[in-house]
Design a protein around this nucleic acid. Sequence first.
DNA 1: TCCAGTTTCTTGTCACTGTCCAGATTGGAA
DNA 2: TTCCAATCTGGACAGTGACAAGAAACTGGA
Lengths: 195, 195
Amino acid sequence: MSRSMAKPAGGYHHGNLQAALEDAALDLLETTSAAKISLREVARRAGVSHNAPYHHFGDRAALLRALGVRGMAALLSAQEEAVAAATGPVERVRALGLAYVRYAAAHPQAFALVFDPDYCAAGTPSAEMAPLITRNEDLLAAEVAALVREPGYEGRDVMALSAALWSTVHGMAQLVTLEHLPVEAAEPALDALVR
Amino acid sequence: MSRSMAKPAGGYHHGNLQAALEDAALDLLETTSAAKISLREVARRAGVSHNAPYHHFGDRAALLRALGVRGMAALLSAQEEAVAAATGPVERVRALGLAYVRYAAAHPQAFALVFDPDYCAAGTPSAEMAPLITRNEDLLAAEVAALVREPGYEGRDVMALSAALWSTVHGMAQLVTLEHLPVEAAEPALDALVR
DNA sequence: TCCAGTTTCTTGTCACTGTCCAGATTGGAA
DNA sequence: TTCCAATCTGGACAGTGACAAGAAACTGGA
């Protein structure tokens, strides 16, 4: 349920309300889209008054931005673990993409929040979000760079290929969460491109 | 501004309020995300009371669903026109994808609404949306089928390739609207895959 | 120990929203 | 004309995000 310590004492002060609020909101995000999450419901779940959140988050968007950062971090580490477990350049790129799609399928609301321009604008990412984004881009670029040194992939433009791969994987993740594509179709479709 | 006839007379009855409401909402959608569009603001723009919309749309979601149908129709015809203007299987697939991305870049909020699970759920599409979706899938499948008859593309699985292409194009559209990718990067990235 | 000062939380309030209700207005059919 | 159904209005209610003022609890220094 809660990812960190809950209310420790019954006193006036909560102890770790910031984390408790994020946890409560993350629980809601498992079943509800970010647009439908209300600050007051989150406060209720954390057992505090409707205004307590404003001392830890400037407004509703700030809370959701914090959740977005958590989601992006989870998405990134899912990819890193998958890449670390795979062997060979082709297999590593494949694993990276599948991890991306599978994270989206497992946490559709969190995934949607990470890429929701209303809260996590890519044009002006938050100070916590920006390094995660570049880390993700670097991870992909490094794997693609290794790929184009393989026989059969030589001479490809790393930038263009990275962009194309990210697009494919991201679109696949999106279409899977939208139930436009079944999850099982992701793997063969990805293989159809990577070959 | 308004896409169809506006309020015709000053009388009690509006004349064509349904269309006027959709037009007003579409204007708002050019600059505002669907989540931030309020029924009352739309009614205000159409010059009617806050409750008039309820006689033409059951609730707020119904209005946005109608906008989603309009957006999907526009996205579809943009692709059809692009395909009709192109010659040769490879070029036609390329044109289809570029039209998709360019529509998203030109109307990011409308594009987002079309694929917003809160309003236009793909799992259970509305009666007006469903035929548009299948028409789009058929269009893509037909072009891919023509493509795999070309030398250099023989023997590919049409289903898997269609899914992969749609994913790529959709993800590219998404990343462009999110400003994660510049629009100019779309064309070379697409070419890097289609070759 | 006591006691300011600061942070955290609560209660009260406001404007705005979606939706329901009852009633007024209108256009068309009998 | 008269009646009816469709359309639109105003009022009401609960829920929401946000602001303001005050209570409670933790903090450090005397």
